[in-house]
Each structure stands twice: as structure tokens, then as C-alpha cells.
């Protein structure tokens, strides 16, 4: 059981980071279906940089830049050029998938240096790791995981407790009102779409640099889409997405352990998506829990 919970966290981290990224993006009123693509860009950039430089910090920076770079293409198209968000996001996923497997074709089978793997070795946090059940699960992990916890907490505070975060939410709900009250819409949108991409890139890098850690073509294998589902499942709330990510992460690996009960992993794999549809269908009454009002509508000031 302990081992399973521990593994559920590891499986949940890429989902968590991508979910945080997509939550921020959607809060800015942008549905970016390029999550999978940005994760792959981050994964390949992180792995390649880690391989050639041997520096974990540079690897993470590269993943952030690659994810944000993908988001920049999406941002130029949907923010400045007001293109259709669904189409632009899908194009970004096609790009990320193709580009990563092109760049990664020489990386298959290569191993990261000792220095890298050592850096991401699990470290027990004194005292906290002694807590029964959750101690081992939460606090005997690698630095990347702790960093993700921190990001999750900070992003929640940012969205709900700071002026900038509230401004951002205003943009996602009603851009013309936000514009009228003097919030620089375009700048906000760019910053948060890029930030969202950076987080997706990080999520991808966790897979290629820490979890696997090797380059495989299409290493994310659909996790980007689960993240899009998670954003809804967790009702656009960064803190809830922590639990959601562990739950969905756990679901993705539990089939292996349930083989004796004859439950197919393929059936379990359907659950995240089914639950998301249910949440979407049932949870619409409460305004606080629903999608940003102006999501996926382009904003053109002169059309108010």
C-alpha cells in the first residue's frame, strides 16, 4: 500500500504540473488544447539539455523555455491574431508531437549522467517523513516533487489572494469589464498563457528526466489530455488539482495491482474521462465551480 501511494504521487506529478498550467491558461480565458504538445516539447528539451550539459538546473530551465515557446506560438495566434483557440491548440499538439520525436530521434537509448540521477534521488524530509502513511508517500520524494508542491501552493495563493490573480480571473470572466477597469488585457494574457506553457513543459520534463528517465517517442502518451480533464474535475482550483492529480495518477497505475481481481487497466483508464464528463454535467449550477465565462472567445476591444 505504501509503495502504491508513493508511486501514485510520482505518476501524479506530471499531471499536476500540466493541470496547474492549463488552469492558469484557462483563467486567462484561453482553452489551450496544446498541453500534450507543450509537455512533449518540455520533455525533449529537458532530457536533451540534461544529457548534453549534465546540469539538472539547466535541464529544468530548458523544459520551461520549450513549454513557454510552444505557448508563445499559440499566444501569438489566439491573443494577437484572435484565431480559433481549439484549432490553434490542436495544431500546437501536432507540432509538439512531431518536433519532439524529430529532435528526440537521436536520444533514444541514451542515459543521463550519474550527476543528474543523483540530483533527483528521493530525499526524506526529517520529521515529516515519519508521519504514518502519508509521511512516506509525500515526504520521501525527489526535489522536483517538492518543487511541484511549492508551485501548487503558490499558484493557489496567487490566483485567489493577490490582486494580479484576481485581475486575471476578471479577464477570464469578462474581458471588457476588466479592460474598462484598466487591466492591461493583452499583457496579462500573454504572461499567463506563457506561464501555463512553462508548467506543461515542466510536467513533461518530470517524465523524461526523473520518472522514466529516458527518452521515448511520445513519452507523455495522452497525459496532456488527462490534464485538460483534470482542470475541470478540480474546478479550476490549483489546490484541489493536487488531490485530483494523485487520484488520476493512482488510477493510471492501479490496474497492475488489481490484476488478481480481474479488473482491466483499460477499463480503469476510462474512468478519468467518464468522471470528468459527470463533473461537467452535474457541477454547472454553482458559479464558483464553473469554467471562466469568456473562455475560448477571442477579445476584440472595438467589438464590445
Amino acid at each position: 500500500m505504501n509503495a502504491f501511494l508513493h508511486a501514485a504521487i510520482i505518476a501524479g506529478i506530471p499531471l499536476l504540473l500540466a493541470t496547474l498550467g492549463e488552469t492558469i491558461t484557462e483563467k486567462a480565458g484561453h482553452l489551450n488544447l496544446g498541453v500534450e504538445g507543450m509537455m512533449l516539447l518540455g520533455a525533449v528539451a529537458g532530457f536533451a539539455t540534461g544529457l548534453y550539459t549534465g546540469s539538472p538546473v539547466l535541464a529544468i530551465l530548458a523544459a520551461i523555455l520549450a513549454g513557454a515557446g510552444g505557448a508563445l506560438i499559440y499566444g501569438i495566434l489566439t491573443i494577437s491574431m484572435r484565431a480559433n483557440q481549439v484549432v490553434s491548440g490542436l495544431a500546437l499538439t501536432i507540432f509538439g508531437t512531431g518536433f519532439s520525436s524529430y529532435m528526440g530521434s537521436g536520444l533514444i537509448g541514451q542515459k543521463l549522467s550519474e550527476q543528474m540521477t543523483d540530483f533527483f534521488r528521493p530525499v526524506a524530509i526529517p520529521l515529516l517523513s515519519g508521519i504514518p502513511l502519508i509521511g512516506d508517500m509525500l515526504f520521501r520524494q525527489d526535489v522536483f516533487v517538492y518543487f511541484s508542491y511549492l508551485l501548487c501552493i503558490l499558484i493557489g495563493i496567487y490566483l485567489f489572494k493577490t490582486n494580479m490573480g484576481l485581475n486575471l480571473q476578471a479577464i477570464g470572466e469578462n474581458p471588457s469589464a476588466a479592460d474598462a477597469s484598466g487591466i492591461p488585457i493583452t499583457r496579462y494574457k500573454y504572461i499567463h498563457v506563457l506561464l501555463g506553457g512553462a508548467l506543461c513543459g515542466l510536467g513533461g520534463a518530470y517524465l523524461s528526466v526523473v520518472q522514466v528517465p529516458q527518452w521515448q517517442e511520445n513519452i507523455t502518451s495522452g497525459r496532456g489530455w488527462i490534464a485538460i480533464a483534470l482542470v475541470i474535475f478540480c474546478k479550476w482550483n490549483p489546490w484541489k488539482s493536487f488531490f485530483g492529480a494523485i487520484l488520476f495518477g493512482g488510477l493510471s497505475i492501479v490496474g497492475f495491482r488489481l490484476q488478481q481481481f480481474n479488473i482491466s487497466q483499460h477499463i480503469l483508464d476510462m474512468l478519468p474521462y467518464l468522471v470528468t464528463i459527470l463533473v461537467l454535467a452535474i457541477g454547472r449550477e454553482n458559479k464558483k465551480n464553473s469554467a471562466p465565462e469568456a473562455m475560448s472567445l477571442p477579445y476584440f476591444r472595438e467589438e464590445r
Binding site: 480533464a229 483508464d269 474521462y273 467518464l274 470528468t276 454535467a281
Partner: peptide
């Protein structure tokens, strides 16, 4: 229920994929 169709149709893609995979295995 005024549910967002973009997301529901997207989710159904993966449900269908896993359903057929289940049948295959």
C-alpha cells in the same frame, strides 16, 4: 444542461479509445 461540448466530445475520444483497447485485449 448547457454542458461545454468541446470538453465532452474530447473526453469521449479517450473513452472510445480505451473501450476498443479493452475489447482488443
Amino acid at each position: 444542461l448547457q454542458t461545454n461540448e468541446t470538453i465532452v466530445t474530447l473526453m469521449l475520444n479517450y473513452i472510445a479509445f480505451h473501450l476498443v483497447t479493452y475489447l482488443q485485449y
